[in-house]
C-alpha cells in the first residue's frame, strides 16, 4: 500500500501543499476549504509539514460519539462520514497532533483523507518533502540537483500494515 511520506528537511514551507489541499477539498471555488495539511517554518532553515498520521488507535475515532470516523480499507485513511457527523467537535480537541479541524466556512470536519488515494499535496510539493509512494525516494546525488543535506530520519504517514 502506498503511503504519504514526509521528509521535513526537504520542506521549504512554501505552502503549495496547503493550497492544493484547500482546492481539492472544496466544491465551491469561491470558498477555500480548511487545509488538512499545514506547513510550518519552525526556525531559519527548519521547516516541516504536519498532517494526519492515520493512527491505528486514533483518539479522534475514540472520542466520536456517533462512529462517524471510518477506515477506508483501500487507502488506509481514517475518513469522516459527514452524513453521520454531528459536529460535536470533540475529535478536534482529542487529537494530540491537532490534525483534525472544524471548518467553519463549510460547516464540516476537515481531516486528511489521502484524497481517496491520490493526495494533491504530494503532487504539488516541488521538493519531494511530501511523497505518496511505496517508499520515499532517495536523496538526489550531488550534482544532480542542488545538494540537499542527508536525511537522518523520515516521518512516514499512512496506515501501516503491521
Amino acid at each position: 500500500m502506498k503511503q504519504l511520506f514526509v521528509t521535513p528537511n526537504r520542506c521549504t514551507a512554501c505552502r503549495n501543499c496547503e493550497v492544493a489541499c484547500s482546492f481539492v477539498h472544496t466544491s465551491d471555488p469561491t470558498v477555500l476549504a480548511f487545509p488538512r495539511v499545514r506547513a510550518y517554518a519552525i526556525s531559519e532553515n527548519t521547516n516541516t509539514v504536519n498532517l494526519c498520521l492515520q493512527c491505528d488507535d486514533a483518539a479522534c475515532k475514540k472520542s466520536c460519539p456517533v462512529e462517524a470516523l471510518v477506515w477506508n480499507a483501500k487507502t488506509g485513511a481514517l475518513e469522516v462520514d459527514l452524513g453521520r457527523c454531528i459536529r460535536c467537535l470533540m475529535c478536534t480537541i482529542a487529537c494530540p497532533f491537532g490534525n483534525i479541524h472544524f471548518d467553519k466556512r463549510t460547516n464540516e470536519i476537515a481531516k486528511c483523507d489521502l484524497c481517496q488515494g491520490d493526495p494533491a499535496c504530494a503532487k504539488f510539493c516541488p521538493t519531494l518533502a511530501l511523497e505518496y509512494a511505496e517508499k520515499p525516494s532517495p536523496d538526489p546525488k550531488p550534482g544532480e540537483v542542488k545538494p540537499l543535506p542527508p536525511i537522518p530520519w523520515m516521518l512516514f504517514t499512512g496506515k501501516q500494515s503491521r
Binding site: P8, T46, T48, T92, I93, G98, N99, P152, M154
Partner: peptide, 18 residues
C-alpha cells in the same frame, strides 16, 4: 485547541527529525 496542538506537533517532529 487543534491549531495549537498542530503547531506544537510540527515543532516536535522537526526536533526529532533533524
Amino acid at each position: 485547541c487543534d491549531s495549537c496542538r498542530n503547531r506544537e506537533a510540527a515543532a516536535r517532529f522537526v526536533r526529532v527529525t533533524f
